[in-house]
Amino acid sequence: MDVLVQGFRHALRLLAGGDPDVLGILWLSLEVSATATLIALVLGIPLGAALALTRFPGRVLLVSAVNTGMGLPPVVVGLFVTVLLWRSGPFGDLEVLYTPAAIVVAQAVIAAPIVTGITLAAVQQVPEKFRLQLVALGASRRQMVWVVLGEARLPMLAAVMAGFGGVISEIGASMMVGGNIRGQTRTLTTAMVLETSKGNFDIAIALALLLLALVFLVNWALTTIQQRRAL
């Protein structure tokens, strides 16, 4: 119990003092996960909308694959991204393994199915007759999809929350493709693992508090938007 209280005290001191190491880690995590979420949105929203609005053979199989992807274990993603980016691998020439870019790639792979799946569900709950009404008012296919996405905007904010929340807290992939290099690829979660294993509970607790605060703030902001529009 003493360790915990001590840890909290030290953690607050570290945060209040603006420890450059801790702030660097925080900034990197935020940057990497935000970029990965953005990429996931760019890929996942059109894909989810397309899957919701079209019918083709094999669609159910693809939707099942997306749903499976929503629960993709990060270590599995880490493994395959590592293999692909390995010096002798197909993308080895890019030399991005053990850089923040590699973490962005891995996290985008984790978040994209989440965004796709939630977009798919959100667009599908817009009634088909509403879509017919838009077409009957002269909407082209693209205009129709745009309005339908607008209708689904509230549930789709959940896609942003789930995507970002998933990747900022993820550890396996970041560790494997980033390598937890101090000052370069050390994120909140990988740093936490390291400090805990070294017995530096105070630093680990400080990082944990930061992570929780960060996830909370992002969700709070998005929930505020969502709930205000829902009224």
Binding site: K129, F130, Q133, L137, G138, V147, G150
Partner: peptide
């Protein structure tokens, strides 16, 4: 079809208003 559809307009049993 799109060009011709734009010279018509349909109203259904339910108003199907957009959320705006």
């Amino acid at each position: 079809a799109l060009a011709e559809r734009r010279r018509m307009a349909t109203v259904f049993q339910e108003p199907w208003l957009a959320d705006t």
